[in-house]
């Protein structure tokens, strides 16, 4: 996930300062990991360094002084290029659950019990997300981001179910090598 491009995207609507960008990010992408203020600040400085954004001025508005940023033309081009570029479809398979299953077999643990516990945790999280999604107050952005996570958790679950059913073969394969 590219924080630079997301900030550039938020700046596309007009000049904004760091705190405002953080607030809008968290609002626009519910259920995502919230941006740390320090991260927003360093990313903005890098954008300025690369000529993709520039300082518009300062604005105190009665409170502490805040630096306003705006996107440059080059920043706009960079953003358009990034938004149209496809995301590489799973270039590396990083699967912590699979790693744990294999390690568990190697160390003589109980991979079946682990998978069952993981399944329970997944279901618990899916129930939480479904509750968030079906609450009367939730807007479409919330529903869509919860759906995204739900579908991924569901994919994990289906993978775990088929893996649990084939643990014996997997154990034999891992032990043999």
């Amino acid at each position: 996930m590219s924080t630079r491009h997301i900030l550039l995207g938020l700046l596309a609507g007009g000049p904004s300062h760091g705190y405002d960008l953080k607030r809008r990010h968290d609002e626009r992408f519910p259920q995502a990991r919230p941006l740390a203020y320090g991260q927003v600040y360093t990313t903005l400085q890098r954008l300025v360094r690369d000529g993709l954004a520039e300082v518009e001025g300062t604005d105190s508005d009665g409170g502490p002084e805040r630096t306003m940023y705006r996107a440059t033309d080059e920043g706009g081009r960079e953003l358009a290029g990034w938004a149209g570029e496809i995301a590489p479809p799973a270039p590396f398979v990083t699967n912590e659950i699979f790693a744990k299953v294999v390690v568990s077999i190697l160390a003589g643990g109980d991979p079946a019990a682990y998978l069952q516990a993981q399944r329970t945790a997944h279901m618990e999280r899916m129930r939480e997300l479904t509750a968030v999604k079906t609450a009367r107050s939730s807007d479409l952005a919330t529903v869509l981001s919860a759906d995204y996570a739900l579908n991924h958790l569901d994919a994990d679950l289906r993978w775990m179910t088929t893996t649990a059913a084939r643990l014996t073969t997997l154990t034999a394969e891992v032990d043999a090598s």
Binding site: Q116, L157, R158
Partner: peptide, 27 residues
């Protein structure tokens, strides 16, 4: 049989071969 549908429930009971799978396995 769809976990996304089951997630609408408060609680889940798993069946396997006609019996309930025991829940709450401690890791």
């Amino acid at each position: 049989h769809d976990a996304r549908v089951a997630a609408y429930a408060d609680r889940e009971v798993q069946l396997l071969d006609g019996a309930v799978v025991p829940q709450g396995v401690t890791v």
